[in-house]
């Protein structure tokens, strides 16, 4: 599997991660159900406001999932930042990973000058890194 994603969305994830640094930032990119196409980035609150943990606010998450259902969308990407370590899933990330259809994107902001962005599948406790194909703005997904 490869995650094909527009440059603008990657930039927004990094911007979100930088803005919340040193706390972890988190969010999703939704897309049409079954399409595996990331189309709509939604920043989520980190209810933990912590540099070592993130959790979607449960009320905000319920609203999001109902909206996705109503629009026949699903979570295509779950992203979050690591602010002191590399962009690789932690044991905690793996234990919580509950979206088998999603790409898990990690953004590391430990280096203030360059962000590290990597994508994974996490299914049944197994982490598989996958290529990240960043689509230049000119070829971006039409909206």
């Amino acid at each position: 599997m490869t995650l094909r994603i527009p440059r603008s969305m990657v930039d927004e994830m990094v911007e979100h991660a930088r803005a919340d640094h040193p706390d972890e930032a988190c969010g999703v990119v939704a897309g049409p159900a079954g399409s595996d196409r990331p189309e709509r980035l939604v920043r989520m609150l980190n209810a933990e406001r912590s540099p070592t943990f993130y959790r979607f606010d449960s009320a905000e998450q319920l609203r999001l999932y109902r909206e996705l259902d109503a629009r026949d969308e699903e979570v295509v990407v779950v992203y979050h930042s690591h602010t002191a370590t590399e962009a690789y899933p932690s044991r905690t990330d793996v234990s919580y990973a509950g979206e088998p259809q999603a790409h898990y994107v990690l953004v590391s902001t430990r280096d203030p000058d360059s962000a590290e962005i990597r994508s994974y599948r996490i299914v049944d406790g197994t982490v598989t890194e996958e290529p990240l194909d960043i689509i230049p703005a000119a070829e971006g997904v039409a909206t």
Binding site: T52, R55, T85, R91, Y96
Partner: peptide
């Protein structure tokens, strides 16, 4: 629950 975090214990 969508959660996780930056533990040093990498898998």
């Amino acid at each position: 629950a969508v959660a996780g975090g930056d533990s040093r214990a990498q898998v």
